[in-house]
């Protein structure tokens, strides 16, 4: 933990972390507020599972005993969008579903991230027809795309770790991202 903080937040302009740490006997960590904030966020995702389709089966496995998303700090599903910061879009989004997805996204508090789980959420998959939205990025901004039909749990975990890296590198100026670019109001 201390290593991560040093690497990401170490303040080189004021003499370097190592010197200060030695001076203070290891009892104090010097870092940037932004870095420790990001570090806290990346290990405590509160996910909102927007589970619609087949990918939900793999989502159950990912949360289940063998793969256990809890090890990465993202286990606790929140079934209210207002309490969640990671929107997991798991499965196909149809045109009937689309306004609901946008509404859920807009209800989430900042900072928030969106995880496109499975190829249907990423691009519509092999459902290229009248009923299906061709990728949720036509509706809401997406942070991580995990393809696969459905993706294996290993892929999901890999995607989550990539999202953690992304969160670690984000700046306060990145937020708020604001409402979704498409609106429910007609």
């Amino acid at each position: 933990m201390i290593d991560t903080l040093k690497r990401k937040g170490g303040c080189s302009s004021c003499g370097g972390v190592d010197d200060d740490s030695r001076l203070l006997g290891g009892s104090v960590i010097l870092t940037k507020l932004e870095a420790i904030n990001n570090w806290g966020r990346k290990y405590s995702f509160f996910q909102y599972p927007f589970v619609t389709a087949c990918c939900g089966m793999e989502f159950m496995s990912v949360c289940g005993p063998k793969y256990d998303l809890d090890r990465f700090g993202a286990a606790l599903p929140r079934f209210s969008p207002r309490q969640a910061d990671l929107l997991m879009v798991v499965g196909t989004i149809s045109h009937k579903q689309a306004p609901i997805l946008v509404k859920v996204y807009n209800q989430m508090a900042e900072p928030k991230w969106v995880f496109a789980f499975g190829v249907c959420a990423v691009s519509g998959g092999f459902y290229d027809n009248y009923a299906t939205v061709q990728g949720i990025d036509t509706l809401i901004p997406v942070d991580i795309y995990v393809p696969g039909c459905p993706p294996r749990p290993e892929m999901v975990i890999d995607g989550l770790i990539k999202l953690q890296q992304k969160v670690m590198e984000s700046r306060w100026s990145d937020y708020p991202k604001g409402a979704s670019p498409v609106s429910n109001d007609k």
């Binding site: 045109h95 009937k96 306004p99 946008v102 290229d128 009248y130 939205v133 509706l139 498409v182």
Partner: peptide
Amino acid sequence: IKKRQPQIG
């Protein structure tokens, strides 16, 4: 087959 009628987006 591809005539879409989105409610949003």
